[in-house]
Simulated assay, not measured.
Amino acid sequence: MPADTLAAMPKIRHEVPLELLRHKPELVAALLADTDIELPVDATATVTDSNLSTCEPPEFRADAVTLLHGTDGGKLAVITESQSDPPKPSKRRAWPAYVSVAQSQHDCDAVLVVIASSRATARACRRTIHTGHPGFDLAPIVIGPHNTPDPTNPAFAAIAPELTVLAAVTRALDLHEDATRRMVLDQLATLDPETRTTYTRFVQQAASHAVKKALEELMASPAYRDEFIDGFIDKGRAEGRAEGEVTGEAKMLIRILNARGFVVTDNLRARIQSCSNTKQLETWADRAMSADTIESVFDH
Results as ranks from 00 to 15, higher is better:
14 H>Q: 10
24 K>L: 05
291 A>Q: 02
43 A>N: 07
89 P>V: 02
76 L>Q: 09
25 P>I: 03
237 R>A: 13
68 L>D: 04
214 A>D: 12
254 I>N: 04
235 K>Q: 14
122 A>K: 10
57 P>A: 13
208 S>V: 01
191 L>I: 01
267 N>Q: 12
199 Y>W: 11
242 A>M: 15
111 V>T: 10
140 P>M: 07
104 S>Q: 14
272 I>R: 01
297 V>S: 03
56 E>P: 00
70 G>S: 08
197 T>Y: 01
294 I>Y: 06
109 D>L: 10
37 I>K: 11
184 V>N: 06
29 A>D: 03
229 I>S: 15
101 V>S: 09
75 K>A: 05
31 L>E: 03
249 E>G: 08
236 G>I: 03
289 M>S: 08
228 F>W: 05
156 F>D: 01
237 R>H: 14
157 A>R: 15
195 T>G: 00
23 H>Y: 07
164 T>E: 00
182 R>G: 00
224 Y>G: 01
210 A>D: 10
103 Q>A: 14
3 A>F: 13
26 E>A: 15
76 L>I: 08
291 A>W: 05
69 H>P: 00
242 A>C: 10
296 S>N: 07
28 V>L: 06
251 K>V: 05
124 A>Y: 08
158 A>F: 01
233 I>L: 15
14 H>M: 04
122 A>G: 06
69 H>S: 12
19 E>A: 13
18 L>K: 14
153 N>A: 11
171 R>V: 02
166 L>H: 02
286 D>P: 03
258 N>P: 01
